[in-house]
Nucleic acid binder design. Structure first.
Length: 133
RNA sequence: ACAGUCUAGUGGGCUGCCGCUGGUGAGAGUCGCAAGAUUCAAACUGGAGGAAAGUCCGGACUCCACAGGGCAGGAUGCUGGCUAACGGCCAGGCGGGGGAACCCGACGGAAAGUGCAACAGAGAGUAAACCGCCAACCCGACGUGAUUUAUCACGGCGGCGGUAAGGGUGAAACGGUGAGGUAAGAGCUCACCAGCAGUCCUGGUAACAGGCUGGCUCGGCAAACCCCAUCCGGAGCAAGACCAAACAGAGGAAGGUUUUGGUCACAAGUAAAGGUAACUUUGCGAGUGAUCAAACGAACGUCGGCUCGACGUCUCCCGGGUAGGUCGCUUGAGGUGAUUGGUAACAAUCCACCCAGAUGAAUGGCAGCCUCCGUUCGCUUGCGAACGAAGACAGAAUCCGGCUUAAAGCUGGUCUGCCAAG
C-alpha cells in the first residue's frame, strides 16, 4: 500500500472484525458522511494508528477502486498519522458508491471530502479524552 | 490529394520531493556456550496491459481415479499443412457478396429412418387443379332439324375426363431456352445449358477442376432428432507439498526420582591399645545397598476385602492437524538479432538478454516543464491564453498458445478506384 508500511495496516480479518465490533458495543467511534464511513476502535497500545480500507465493487471497477484506495492512503499518511488522538487506534475507512459521479469518474475533491469526515472523527475522539484526565 | 481495402506499430516524455513492494544488503539489535535463529535497516536495483478484461477454447503443472473394451454424454466437421495442443493459424478448393482491392461462409450425410414448413395459396411431398386451355367417347338438360312419336342427327352449355404451357400465391410449386410434337399440352422427342450417376480419362498429395459416357429430372431444412468420421477420465494453484502454537481423538512407553533423618549390612581409610614383627582387637567412619518415616516432586485418585485389572489426571514418544507460516512462484512451448529451409503458418542452428511476483493484496501521491489531442475565448488567421485526470478502454494473482469483447488519439506500409494534372 502506498504511504503506509505493513505495521500501519490492518492485515487480517480478525483486526477488521474487532474494529467493526468495537463501534457496535459502544467503545468505538463511527462517523457517517456522504462519501465515507469511518470507524475507529478505542486506542490500544502505544503505537501509530493503523488503517484498514473497505471498497466494495459497487464503487466501480478495479481501476476506480484502486484510485480511491490510493487517495485515502495518501491522506492518511500525510495528515492523520501525526494526529495525537488517533494513536493506537484501528481506523477502518469504508468508501461509498457516491464517490463516483455519473460519468464513472472519481470525484476530484476526494481528499477534501475525506478531510471533512476525519475532522469530525478527531473532534469526537478528542472530546472525551480531554474530559477523562 | 480524395474515397476505400488489408496490415504493422504506439498507448506520452523529462525533473524534483514524499511513499509502497520484490531482490541484493553495508551495518545494528535480541536470543544462544557455539553452530545458528530472528528483528530492524542505509545504499543500489526490478516493479501492469494490448487487451492485464471476458473466462470461451487448447495445453503445461498438481492431486484423485484407471486391466481392456463398449454404452451414454460433450465437442469438432471442405482439403492439405503448422503446432505441445486447439474450436487457433497458414495455404488451397468450392459457394456467396462487392465496380475493384478484398471480404464472408458449422462448407460431412436428405438415395438409413423419424420429423418440420407460419402467412398466403388450388396445392407444401409417392404433389395439387382455383382462374385457364382442350379433341373424341360417355352422361344431363336445352335449342334446331328429321321422322319410325320416342328415337336419331347437329349445335353450343354443363358434368365426367385430359393437361400442367400461361396467370396468381409463396422463402420454396418436381429443371431452363429453343424447336418438333399435340385436341390442348407435357423430357413426350431433339439440341444446347443446369443438375445426377460412372470400378471411365487427364491434371492435382487432396478438396476439386476439365473431359468422356450414360440414362434420367430425383425439392428444402441436419444452427430438428439422427447417421458417419475424429477427439475427449475428473477436479483445479483456494491444485498440491512441508513446518506447526492451540486442540480433540487414538496408539505406545515410563511409572519412579531427589533431599533429610533413623535402623541394619558391607566397607576405602583413620585413631588408640597389644605385639620385636607379620598382625590382632576396639573405636570412629567418607561411601554403597536394603528398609522405614518426612518433605519436595508427582504416582496419586476412583472402583475393589487384597492382588491382578480398568478408568481419570499428569510426563514423554509416535501419528493427525486448526490458526499461522514456508514452498509451489515465476527461466519459460521465454526472447533480441542473424543465417538457412518453406509460398506461408512455422521449423532448425548460432547468439546478446533475465524482464513484476503482491496475498485486506505493491507498481503510487503532489508539484513543475515539454510536446499531442479536444473545447472555449481573443485577435495579428496562425499564434496566444484558459480548461480538460495525456484526458480511450482498462489493473497482474500458477504459467503459456489462441479466440472474443472494449476503446481517445497518433504514426507507417500494401493494394484498389476515381477526378484533375504530369
Amino acid at each position: 500500500m502506498p504511504g503506509i508500511s505493513k505495521s500501519q495496516r490492518l492485515l487480517t480479518k480478525r483486526d477488521f472484525d474487532a474494529t467493526l465490533d468495537s463501534q457496535q458495543n459502544g467503545t468505538g467511534v463511527k462517523i457517517v458522511c456522504r462519501d465515507f464511513v469511518l470507524v475507529a476502535s478505542p486506542p490500544a497500545a502505544d503505537r501509530p494508528a493503523r488503517l484498514g480500507l473497505i471498497v466494495s465493487r459497487k464503487v466501480g471497477n478495479s481501476v476506480v477502486r484502486n484510485r480511491v484506495k490510493r487517495c485515502v492512503r495518501e491522506y492518511f499518511r500525510n495528515e492523520l498519522v501525526s494526529q495525537q488522538p488517533l494513536n493506537g487506534c484501528n481506523l477502518v475507512v469504508i468508501a461509498r458508491p457516491s464517490l463516483v459521479n455519473q460519468e464513472g469518474r472519481v470525484k476530484d475533491d476526494i481528499q477534501g471530502s475525506l478531510k471533512h469526515c476525519a475532522d469530525r472523527l478527531l473532534k469526537k475522539l478528542s472530546g472525551p479524552s480531554k474530559s477523562c484526565p
